[in-house]
Simulated scan of single mutants.
Amino acid sequence: MNSTSFTENLDFNDTKIVTQVLLETSFSKEIRILFKKGQVMKEHNAPFPIIVHILEGEIAFGVEGKIHDLKKGAILTLEGNIPHDLTAKADSIVRLTLSKQDTADRVKDVVAES
């Protein structure tokens, strides 16, 4: 058994989005993404399906040109290879579930290029 918290030991950064793999299982990677209000993760796509869960805050989640306002508690799934982007409307904690076949480094690269 592994255990951790998505809401403890938060280290928001005023100049960049913060990502951290908190858990890795036999089938997924659980990543915490910390956004300060106004930070943007530019349009990108994941090669496999993802799950996005807003644990705190509010995110404008763009999918193929349409914006979805996601507030605390919202959760969504997105199939692979669908272009999407995220903009923090408030300081936010986002849980991203990736397929085990996907890489956390890909997420870090998207953040670095945003």
Rank of each mutant, 00 (worst) to 15 (best):
V94C: 03
I93W: 04
M41L: 09
T19R: 05
V94N: 04
E8W: 05
D85W: 13
T77Y: 08
L34F: 03
A90W: 07
K100F: 07
K89D: 03
G57F: 09
M41D: 08
D102I: 11
K36R: 06
R95Y: 14
I17E: 03
I67G: 07
N45A: 13
T4R: 08
E30A: 12
Q20P: 08
T19I: 12
T103G: 03
L76V: 04
K108L: 13
K72W: 06
H53W: 02
D102N: 12
P83V: 12
I82V: 10
L86W: 10
T87S: 14
T15N: 15
A46P: 06
I51M: 13
T103H: 02
E113F: 12
A104S: 14
T15E: 15
Q39N: 01
I33A: 00
E30Q: 15
L98P: 06
V21I: 13
E56D: 14
V63W: 02
R106I: 14
I93F: 02
G73E: 06
N9M: 02
D91S: 01
D102V: 10
E24C: 03
I82Y: 02
S92C: 04
P47V: 08
I75W: 01
D14R: 13
R32I: 02
L22R: 04
V94D: 04
V52M: 03
A46S: 14
D69W: 09
V21Q: 14
N13V: 06
E43K: 00
T15S: 15
V40H: 01
P47W: 08
A88G: 04
H53I: 02
D14I: 13
Q101I: 09
E79C: 09
V110A: 09
E24V: 09
S5C: 10
E56R: 11
T19A: 08
T77Q: 05
G80R: 02
K71E: 14
F12N: 10
D91K: 01
E24N: 08
S92Q: 02
K29E: 06
I59W: 03
H53L: 07
D109L: 15
T97V: 15
Q39T: 01
G65Q: 01
G62T: 15
E58P: 14
F35D: 00
K36Y: 05
L98H: 07
S92I: 06
N9W: 02
E43G: 00
M41W: 04
P47Y: 08
A112T: 09
E58F: 10
I59E: 06
